[in-house]
């Protein structure tokens, strides 16, 4: 018995799927904004002088990057109510994404800051700049430019990761697809369409961030340097800039970008 494809299911409901994609992007944008804030907040702790503070920040980062996002989501959604914290599926999804991506953002920021050669800090000291001046005038402008590419990757990771919100019933692209499938019994057509929409969105973002990186970024991937091995994102803006591992990215990077 042959299967007759009925793509009208997709065309007739394209608006629904596209609105789902809109929600996915919207939720991802909120999540990455939260993750950036969290990352900025945790970075100083991660590099604090006080060892217990450093360990605590390290424990957060390692834990949230090692445990699958889905399990984290289950803890937030199913387990936190035991402690009296009740979130709806979208809120739970957002909280999980922020905590998960926040751990990655922290490491991206740390790598960006640490990629600035020590000589520059010494140079700053030698001309009498304060610690804050050194950070804001020397470290930050350079670090900001070399975290663009890895942050772009992280945003794409967040968009892709947000699909798990559908598992607990949160409405986004995959959930729209699942609902459409349960109405039409056309899993192949519907999920193929969902996959294509994810592909279009992620490719658009890849090119957008690559452009941004070309305009203002630094041709150096902090991601693979200071912490890279484990953070190889599933989606890379360009091919992973592996030469920088072999090259002397850490030593020369910050100086040469002028």
């Amino acid at each position: 018995m042959g299967y007759t494809f009925d793509w009208n299911v997709v065309w007739d409901n394209l608006g629904l799927l596209i609105s789902g994609a809109g929600t996915t992007l919207y939720l991802s944008a909120i999540a990455i904004a939260g993750a950036l804030v969290l990352g900025i907040a945790v970075v100083p702790l991660r590099t604090a002088k006080l060892a217990p503070v450093r360990w605590l920040a390290g424990a957060y980062i390692e834990t949230f990057r090692t445990v699958p996002l889905l399990v984290q989501l289950y803890i937030v959604y199913f387990a936190l109510p035991e402690l009296g914290i009740r979130l709806d599926s979208t809120q739970a999804g957002l909280v999980s994404l922020v905590l998960y991506s926040g751990a990655y953002c922290t490491e991206i920021f740390r790598a960006g800051i640490e990629s600035i050669p020590n000589g520059q800090l010494l140079a700053g000291q030698s001309i009498g700049l304060s610690r804050w001046q050194i950070f804001s005038k020397i470290v930050l402008p350079q670090a900001a430019r070399c975290v663009i590419a890895p942050l772009g990757n992280q945003f794409i990771e967040t968009v892709i990761g947000s699909s798990i919100i559908s598992v607990i019933g949160g409405v986004e692209l995959l959930q729209q697809g699942t609902q459409l499938e349960s109405r039409t019994y056309r899993p192949f057509e519907v999920f193929a369409a969902v996959a294509v929409i994810y592909l279009v969105v992620s490719q658009a973002l890849v090119h957008l961030f690559a452009l941004l990186d070309r305009l203002v970024g630094v041709r150096r991937r902090v991601y693979h340097l200071a912490d890279g091995s484990l953070d190889t994102p599933t989606v890379l803006l360009t091919s992973p800039d592996v030469p920088s591992i072999r090259g002397n990215g850490l030593e020369q990077g910050g100086v040469t970008d002028g």
Binding site: I160, V167, L174, P187, F188, F191, A192, Y198, S202, T234
Partner: peptide, 24 residues
Amino acid sequence: SAVFRGVPALVLIIFFFYGSAAFG
């Protein structure tokens, strides 16, 4: 490469599981 890195693994898993019925 673009497809299998740009589509969420969850969507791939669901698609492979439910979508394969189209090919019997």
